[in-house]
C-alpha cells in the first residue's frame, strides 16, 4: 500500500464526498476556524504592529513577547484550556490566535520601521498628519512585507487548525484524529493531503492578493 494508493482510495470513495462527515463540509469547517482565528489575530496584531512601527517605540518588548508566544506549544495549551474552560470553540481559538500573532506583529512592526525615511520626511514636509503618513506612505510601501507576515500566520493557522478535532470539533483534523484512533490510515493520509492542499491554496490566495494590492511602484521583484 503506497501513500498514493491511500490518497486515490480516499478521494474515490463517494461516501467521503457528502454528509456531515464529507470533504466539502469538513473543508468548510476548517476554513471557518482558520478565518475566525486569522481575523482575531490580525485585529490584534496588525494595529499594534503598525503603530509601534510608525513610532519606532516598543519594538524590543514586542519581539520578546512574540518569541515567548511562539514558544507556547499549541497542543498543550489546547488541552489545558479545555480542562479549565470546558468544551467550546474558545479553547481551540486561543492557541491558534496565540500562534498567529507573533509573525503578524513582528513583520508588520519591522516592515513599517524599515520604510525608507526619505518619502516619510517628504510627506511630513508636505504637512501630512501622522495617521495619513501611516496610511498613505508607510502602509503602501511596507505592504509586501506585511503581507508576508500575514501569509505565514495564515499557513500556520491552516495547518494547526487540525487540533480542533482533538476536542471533538470538525475540520480536516477530524480525518487525521479519527483515522489514527481507528487505525484507518487512508483517512489520515487523505486528511493530511487536504490540509496540505488548503495550505497551498492559502499561499496562492496571498500571492494573488499581493498582485492586486501592492502598488506597482513598490513591487520591485
Amino acid at each position: 500500500m503506497s501513500i498514493f494508493h491511500f490518497i486515490s482510495d480516499f478521494f474515490s470513495q463517494s461516501a467521503h464526498w457528502h454528509g456531515y462527515d464529507g470533504i466539502p463540509q469538513r473543508l468548510w469547517e476548517h476554513i471557518q476556524y482558520s478565518m475566525l482565528a486569522m481575523a482575531v489575530a490580525t485585529g490584534v496584531a496588525l494595529p499594534v504592529g503598525l503603530v509601534t512601527g510608525h513610532t519606532g517605540r516598543g519594538g524590543n518588548a514586542l519581539a520578546l513577547l512574540a518569541t515567548a508566544g511562539r514558544a507556547l506549544p499549541s497542543f498543550g495549551l489546547l488541552v489545558l484550556l479545555f480542562v479549565i474552560i470546558g468544551l467550546g470553540l474558545l479553547p481551540v481559538m486561543i492557541p491558534l490566535v496565540v500562534l498567529a500573532i507573533p509573525p503578524i506583529l513582528v513583520t508588520t512592526n519591522e516592515a513599517v520601521r524599515s520604510v525608507d525615511p526619505a518619502p516619510v520626511d517628504a510627506a511630513r514636509g508636505m504637512g501630512m498628519r501622522p495617521l495619513r503618513i501611516l496610511a498613505q506612505v508607510e502602509l503602501p510601501v511596507a505592504l509586501p512585507l506585511i503581507l508576508s507576515g500575514l501569509r505565514s500566520a495564515a499557513i500556520q493557522i491552516v495547518s494547526t487548525a487540525t487540533i480542533a478535532a482533538y476536542v471533538s470539533f470538525g475540520g480536516l483534523g477530524r480525518y487525521i484524529v479519527d483515522g489514527l484512533y481507528q487505525r484507518d490510515y487512508e483517512q489520515v493520509v487523505g486528511g493530511a493531503t487536504l490540509v496540505a492542499g488548503l495550505a497551498l491554496a492559502t499561499l496562492g490566495a496571498f500571492w494573488l492578493a499581493g498582485r492586486l494590492a501592492v502598488s506597482p511602484g513598490v513591487r520591485h521583484r
Binding site: 488541552v79 479545555f82 480542562v83 470546558g86 468544551l87 467550546g88 478535532a165 482533538y166 476536542v167 471533538s168 477530524r174 484524529v177 479519527d178
Partner: peptide, 19 residues
C-alpha cells in the same frame, strides 16, 4: 463527542456537563 480514551478531556467534559 470525540474526546479521548477515558483521559483528562473526557473527565473534564463530563464534570462540566458538556457531555
Amino acid at each position: 463527542k470525540a474526546l479521548d480514551a477515558g483521559g483528562a478531556l473526557s473527565e473534564a467534559a463530563l464534570k462540566k456537563n458538556d457531555v
